[in-house]
């Protein structure tokens, strides 16, 4: 089937198989390899992207389902060469180590902070429930999110 999607602000039209997931479409067809695949049961969240502004796990969605939608991936988060505050805070607070879960984390939280701009630690930890990090023990991810929330609401 043919789909037309606006990805990181650019319109693309591609032929895809019915079974192609959004994550595979982004990685294989568009070479946007910042979206990672860490599992096969929607359990790890490494593939999180925005579809029409909402964070979704792109391995759980078929490419065909996003026909006509706007998709934003980690590659499209920085605007005009300026990093998103979360990207800065993750660096500042050492919220990443191997980097594999990082794009999913940031895409998830950039949506979360839209709905809850000044979350408590408990709220942050609950918001992260669907995304695994095996390196950081989440300690510095939580610190980075607090830091970004402060920057963004300042």
């Amino acid at each position: 089937m043919e789909i037309t999607v606006k990805v990181n602000g650019k319109q693309v039209t591609r032929e895809v198989e019915g079974r192609t997931t959004l994550s595979t479409f982004l990685r294989e067809d568009l070479s946007l390899t910042g979206t990672h695949i860490g599992c096969d049961t929607s359990g790890c969240g490494a593939c999180t992207v925005h579809v029409d502004g909402k964070a979704v796990k792109s391995c759980t969605l078929l490419a065909g389902q996003v026909d006509g939608c706007e998709v934003k991936t980690i590659e499209g988060l920085a605007e005009n060469g300026k990093m998103h505050p979360l990207q800065d805070s993750f660096k500042e607070k050492h919220g990443l180590q191997c980097g594999f879960c990082t794009p999913g984390m940031i895409m998830l939280v950039s949506d979360f902070l839209e709905t809850n701009p000044s979350p408590s630690e408990d709220e942050i930890r609950h918001a992260l429930e669907g995304n695994f990090c095996r390196c950081t023990g989440y300690h510095n991810i939580v610190a980075a999110i607090k830091d970004a929330a402060e920057t963004m609401s300042a």
Partner: peptide
């Protein structure tokens, strides 16, 4: 010192083996 390697991971430009074509 803040990490030098972070930039590529934060912008989706890390290069893991499965990213190679």
């Amino acid at each position: 010192v803040k990490r030098i390697e972070d930039k590529r991971f934060l912008t989706g430009k890390g290069k893991y083996t499965d990213d190679i074509k």
